[in-house]
Simulated assay, not measured.
Amino acid sequence: MPRLLRFLIWHLSSGFLIGAFTALVIAAQNPEILGHSGAIEPVALAMQVFAFGASFAMGSLGTALMGKID
């Protein structure tokens, strides 16, 4: 596999996992912060996990790319 693809896959997937974990921790500790009233709605939680994951993935990739500049 080319080095560029490994770089992209590694940083996007690690950032997504960190963001997804962050969303799940927030939802587990205090679901009202994310707008859940009482019970956690699965579809809303899935959308929030994806939103956090995508944001963190792009942030991770951007940070990694800026770190590569010499």
Score class of each variant (00 low, 15 high):
T22C: 10
F16I: 05
L61G: 09
I9D: 10
G35N: 13
M58Q: 15
S14A: 13
Q29T: 15
M58R: 09
L5P: 02
P42N: 08
A46I: 10
G59K: 05
A64M: 01
P31K: 12
G38V: 03
G59C: 07
W10Y: 15
G38S: 06
M66Q: 12
S37A: 13
A39M: 05
I26E: 11
A20T: 03
P2I: 02
G67K: 15
L65H: 07
M47V: 04
A28C: 07
L4S: 14
A27V: 02
V49A: 05
L12M: 11
I69E: 13
H11P: 01
A46D: 09
V49M: 02
L8G: 02
A28S: 10
L65I: 15
H36L: 10
G38M: 07
G67I: 03
A51S: 06
F16G: 00
H11N: 14
F7S: 04
A54G: 08
L4V: 14
W10F: 06
L45P: 00
G35F: 06
P42M: 03
A64G: 09
H11E: 15
Q29M: 12
G62L: 10
F21H: 01
A44V: 03
M66E: 09
W10V: 10
G62N: 07
F56W: 09
I69G: 05
H36F: 15
L5S: 12
I69F: 07
R6I: 06
A57G: 04
F56T: 06
A51M: 14
G53M: 00
Q48M: 06
W10G: 09
G35D: 15
L61F: 03
A23M: 12
G62D: 13
S55H: 07
G59L: 13
L5N: 13
V49P: 00
A23T: 02
F21A: 15
A27P: 00
L8Q: 04
L65G: 15
I40Y: 06
